[in-house]
């Protein structure tokens, strides 16, 4: 029996990207999940506080949301929008006053006079020529 194809020319099923297919709930290998209620505002407030506690400022935190490889925050950006994210960051900063203070220590310069001269190492290829009689696979 020949299989129907989109072009109708051959015996092969059309190649479809798996993620383009519709979900089939009765397929045991398909991912299924139940919606779990939750509040994105609680998530964004908690995360902004965590970074604020580490001394990050509003711009630094906002930049994190644009990184698609940090999907938790990126998902929030998609759900709430740029303005929504900014408003919430500002709200956390305004409410908590933000635990952020900084001490700067100016280091003394390196002591060049007493540094030992670095040892010069010559990097070169070893002699890879192998003697035929020493190796059974010598060519």
């Amino acid at each position: 029996m020949e299989m129907e194809t989109q072009g109708g020319t051959g015996r092969f099923a059309p190649k479809v990207h798996p993620l383009s297919r519709s979900a089939t709930p009765d397929d045991p290998m398909d991912l299924n999940a139940a919606a779990v209620p939750g509040d994105p505002d609680v998530l964004i407030n908690a995360l902004v506080q965590e970074y604020a506690w580490m001394g990050w400022d509003g711009d630094e935190i906002a930049a994190l949301f644009h990184d698609p490889f940090y999907p938790m925050l990126h998902g929030l950006l998609e759900a709430l929008g740029e303005t929504g994210v900014r408003d919430r960051i500002n709200a956390v900063f305004n409410r908590d006053g933000v635990f952020r203070f900084r001490t700067t220590v100016h280091e003394a310069p390196d002591d060049h006079d007493h540094e030992p001269e670095p040892e010069v190492v010559q990097i070169g290829a070893f002699n890879l020529k192998r003697k035929e009689q020493d190796h059974v696979d010598g060519l």
């Binding site: 519709s22 919606a35 939750g38 998902g75």
Partner: peptide, 10 residues
């Protein structure tokens, strides 16, 4: 995959 949307928390 086509999963039901839960408001963002994970």
């Amino acid at each position: 995959a086509q999963l039901p949307e839960h408001r963002v928390w994970f």
